[in-house]
Amino acid sequence: MIEIKMKVFFLKIFFFLFLTTAFVVVKGQGVRDIRINEILVKNDSNCIDQYGVHSGWFELFNTGYSTADVGGCYVTNDINNPTKYRIPKGDPRTQMSSRTYSLFYAYNNVDRGIFHVNFSLDEIGFLALFDGSGRVLIDSVSYDITSQRADVSLGKMENVPLEKATWEIMEEPTPNAINYTIVEKTRGEKYAETDKYGVIITITTMTIVFIVLFILAVIFYYTGKYFRKQTERHKQKKEIQLEAIPAVSNANELDLAAIAMALHLYFDDQHEIEQTGFWLNRSLNQHSQWSAKHILFKKSPKRK
């Protein structure tokens, strides 16, 4: 009966944990954190590649907090041809550290290195990034080619959560750099301005610390209550069982004391060495330290 109740109790706990964790959004890391961050379709006087060409470009951004290898992924300007350009794998430059950028030039010339793709951005008005299988779309953007102005890019702002980021027109493109260029105050600086003497943060934080420990205390108050009841029931059951066991009459007092001590040490975790059991071996010599002759007798004097 007690075992069933214990199982029910644990099931309740696991059900509670399941419900709690079910609402947690688990985010994958790696290439799926990479996003198309900025595109410039018409490049008249913006940045040039290492060959001195002004061309359209797009920028990828690793939004995650671990290094991601964009090598092996596909970029395309045609949704019907997801594997149009495979970014070569194995080049250390395709390893994108956390929160860093990678720039690709798009003027349909693959002979100029891995960062030059085989399409241009002013053909279709679409750009997509697929993972290494070529089937999973990581990110895409559609834009109107005709409305694109020279040296004006489209970019996402990094200061808002990824899911809320929208494409905005950027009069001043920022290749290989953060799009959100307004210097924001840190949270610490904001606190220093609004809470000069630290009163607000003290009240807030102390309240939260108290609430957390209070909840923990309440939970363990009731958990303790539950287990106390369980223990009492278990004890009662044991007492009934013990009554049915005949007394051990042939064990002497020393044996019983040794067993009691061993059990005490075992259950109170005072054993230094983990063992799966313990044994009480009767010594072959039927003497203790009080009666051992080799201890009590004086040693024979030695002649020097």
Partner: peptide, 20 residues
């Protein structure tokens, strides 16, 4: 447990003094 929470006021006492 609540005593453990109360004693954390030392953190914020020093925080306020350091800020002010």
């Amino acid at each position: 447990m609540l005593i453990g929470a109360a004693a954390q006021f030392g953190i914020f006492g020093a925080y306020m003094a350091a800020s002010a």
